[in-house]
Design a protein around this nucleic acid. Structure first.
Lengths: 330, 330
DNA sequence: CGGTTTCATGAAATCGATTTCAAAATTGAA
DNA sequence: TTCAATTTTGAAATCGATTTCATGAAACCG
């Protein structure tokens, strides 16, 4: 491998001068600068990034923790993160946690070992107290997910309002018996969605039924399962509020396979507005989340923190709006 | 930050001994070993990975180049790669190329700068001659994609046979006017699919029509566009062979929106067997690709190469089978 | 022209780990 | 008890870059 020393020897200059050229520093005569550039070309020299990281005490890498890459919502957030990261010469290290607490903590070690400069959560399984000890190791940001006791910046979407609007829409269409699919957590995003849902219900004087509340529902398969459970009920809901378009797709498919018509027999509202929402029949009413945008904003905040090391531990909340897209499944 | 020197001072031992404990080397008395472990705990010490990378001349990171994360086929490959990588303590650096030649080359620099130990292509835009110069920097593997002149291991699926089977299936169902959607490249995977398609046609004595060949078709939107073009034709095909389930979904949706019935008016066959294939109506006939498995095999080969530095530049071809899943869109 | 700035350059220290080699400590055998 | 063999330990070199500090050269000024 060619090192900076090789380039130095080849040009007859010192390593210091070569380094200055690499980093575009001043105080190198134009003539020598060109000489070094030539030499680097001819020798095929590229600076060793481990050495640079060690010396500069930074890696130019930001970790992004994602529960599942197969969920387009998260890959879309990544798109947004990436756009800004690239502009700032940052690499993303995408880490799939599979919603495992243990994996989450193990990825946090990337911060401890200085393998990354900062870390972004797009979902959290652990309690904040488990994460807290890592905030000294570098900026941590919550993107999409949030927790009350967290002491770091959070970029969130207005989940409460989103699910309130969606539920209200169902009620306005005349549905009163509404089921709810949510995540597993009783905090942050999951909780706010539930609150928004219940708020819309109670505002309309409707009492939520516990038997129609489905937690831990995440993907197409889960959606199908929920629909099967509903089919087995004597007293069935006439509408379902879901936690994602994938879940909604599973529910709609299972309903159709059992000769129910959507929305006549059962209405379904999605969450996210992914591509699948416009592919499925009937096209899906859903709650649009600006996923790319939340990614972009998050990365901008991250860049900010990486530059002003000072206030990385400050609690800040950015909230982006969310809106209803009415199609034909409700 | 606490360093190995801090731990050494704290225990009254040398850095060498601490290092031996970190790496579980022999020749440390059990008593001192325990002492060091305690100290590391108490000081919250974690080895700096830049320093380790520099000294060990390896990073424990493998880059994976993917055209688009939003395509579930690729995320599914990643799943497979990850399973094996994790078992071997390797981190994946997932790089989205957006099918850009330039991005591809820019990610190859990760090898030059020793930011990663090896690199996996899941698609290639550049000619092999552009990639060739990088093979000295570390193992490169082609996963799914392949090129005749490449001098590295390739793990491929039998694309020729896959598309041959799919096309033959359409012919057996009685379709004779068959359109073809493919990628842009006239080599590797794209070419083999086209060859398999044409072989099945000519075997049945059918002549392929140029006007029904659609290159550069990748996602749902592209599929919709293709269907629009077909609708505008006087002489329309009665079946479409597609390059992915996403494309097929776009085609089916657009057909239905224009009051065509699938498969009666137009049959559509997908490629990949993603979740969407079973959600869309009618459920999609498609060609199953063992995407997770190809990922697993690829990473196993990578591990092999990382261990036996010797033969990383050898050309090898692994081929996995592929098979037809008949549902209702044909 | 002497003296002060400014600019260009290099020697050596540094980042935090691992490894080699030699010395010290321990064990075992006679 | 003595000497050889083995185990344990540490000092210093090393990985490849960046940065500080010192020095010499060039430019500038009255």
């Amino acid at each position: 491998m060619t090192t900076i020393a090789d380039v130095a020897k080849y040009t007859g200059l010192s390593r210091a001068t070569v380094s200055r050229v690499i980093n575009n520093y001043p105080h190198v005569s134009e003539q020598k600068r060109e000489l070094v550039r030539q030499a680097m070309m001819e020798l095929g020299y590229y600076p060793n990034s481990a050495a640079q990281s060690l010396r500069n005490q930074k890696t130019g890498i930001v970790a992004v923790l994602v529960p599942r890459l197969t969920n387009p919502f998260f890959t879309s957030i990544i798109e947004g993160l990436e756009v800004i990261a690239e502009k700032n010469n940052l690499q993303l290290l995408i880490c799939q946690t599979k919603a495992s607490k243990q994996k989450e903590l193990s990825f946090l070690k990337l911060l401890k070992t200085k393998q990354v400069d900062g870390l972004i959560f797009t979902a959290i399984e652990n309690e904040w107290s488990k994460i807290e000890p890592y905030v000294d190791c570098g900026p941590i940001i919550l993107c999409n997910e949030y927790q009350d006791d967290a002491t770091v910046p959070m970029i969130k979407l207005d989940q409460y309002n989103g699910s309130y609007m969606g539920t209200k829409h169902l009620i306005e269409r005349g549905y009163k018996k509404i089921a709810f699919c949510g995540g597993g957590s009783e905090s942050g995003l999951s909780l706010d969605r539930k609150k928004g849902f219940l708020a819309a219900l109670s505002e309309a004087g409707i009492k939520g039924e516990d038997k129609w509340m489905f937690p831990f529902v995440y993907n197409i398969g889960d959606g199908k399962k929920v629909m099967k459970e509903i089919l087995a009920m004597d007293d069935r809901p006439t509408a379902v509020f879901t936690s994602s378009d994938e879940v909604a797709a599973g529910i709609i498919k299972e309903a159709k396979d059992n000769n129910l018509t959507v929305p006549e027999d059962i209405a379904v509202i999605g969450f996210d507005d992914q591509a699948i929402a416009q592919i499925i029949e009937p096209e899906m009413t859903t709650i649009y989340q600006p996923s790319e945008e939340i990614g972009r904003v998050t990365m901008e905040v991250m860049i900010e923190l990486l530059n002003n090391k000072a206030q990385s531990k400050m609690k800040m909340i950015y909230e982006l709006p969310i809106n209803l897209v009415i199609r034909k499944s409700t």
